[in-house]
Amino acid sequence: MADNQQAAAGSEQATQPQFALQRIYVKDLSFESPNSPMVFQDQWKPQVNLDLNTTHSKVSDTQYEVVLSLTVTAKLDEKVAYLVEIQQAGVFLMQGFPEQQIGPMLGAYCPNLLFPYARESIDNIVSKGSFPALMLAPVNFDAIFAQAVKRKQQEAEGNGAAAPEAPQTH
């Protein structure tokens, strides 16, 4: 009887969804300070702009690569003080999840895990460029993903086509 219970427990574990972060890495990183050293003579009151994008691709049946791309531009008046571009990536194991959960995980949950690493890399490279530290504010990837889904649904209704299950966020 104990063997039957163990076998049942084993089969339940096999069907339970599994999620694991397998690797986090910087895929690409760029820093430019086109107006240095003159930019250091100006009073430091920058206008900072953040652009972000996420993409994902299937690596294997159970692994996905998610890439969070951030571009930070700091300007003093119209002069670019610095420009940082980073692609922070991760490989995620996802097994046993219903199809409808994969999209939100790839579009919101995984980028949310990657963001602190990208933020730290940006702060580090900006400081090494001799600029004041830059700590980016948190980003609500759930809201961004929900907006992307809504936008894709509206586009699909306008074109008469079916909406994709996991839209890319922009």
Results as ranks from 00 to 15, higher is better:
Ala143Ser: 10
Tyr109Gln: 09
Ser121Ile: 13
Leu113Arg: 14
Pro17His: 05
Ala9Met: 10
Val80Phe: 00
Ser60Asn: 15
Lys150Arg: 13
Val59Ser: 04
Ala2Gly: 14
Thr62Gln: 13
Ser33Trp: 02
Lys150His: 10
Gln5His: 06
Gln41Ala: 13
Pro37Gly: 06
Ala143Asp: 11
Ala133Glu: 15
Ser121Tyr: 05
Glu99Asp: 10
Lys58Ala: 10
Ser60Leu: 11
Ala81Gln: 02
Gln6Gly: 00
Thr54Gln: 12
Val139His: 05
Lys152Ala: 14
Ser11Gln: 13
Tyr109Pro: 00
Lys128Leu: 15
Ser130Gly: 02
Phe31Val: 06
Pro111Asn: 13
Asn112Val: 02
Val149Gly: 00
Val48Cys: 03
Leu76Asp: 00
Ile102Pro: 00
Ile102Glu: 04
Lys45Val: 11
Asp123Asn: 15
Phe31Arg: 03
Pro17Val: 12
Phe40Tyr: 13
Pro17Ala: 12
Arg151Trp: 01
Val26Pro: 03
Trp44Tyr: 15
Ala8Val: 07
Glu155Asn: 04
Glu99Ser: 07
Val84Glu: 08
Met94Cys: 09
Gln63Thr: 04
Thr54Trp: 00
Phe40His: 08
Ala74Leu: 01
Ala163Met: 12
Asn35Pro: 01
Asp123Ser: 15
Asn159Lys: 13
Ala137His: 07
Gln95Val: 01
Ala163Ile: 05
Asn35Asp: 05
Asp28Leu: 03
Trp44Asp: 11
Ser60Gln: 15
Ile102Gln: 05
Trp44Cys: 07
Pro37Cys: 05
Ile125Trp: 09
Pro46Val: 04
Ser60Trp: 12
Ala89Pro: 02
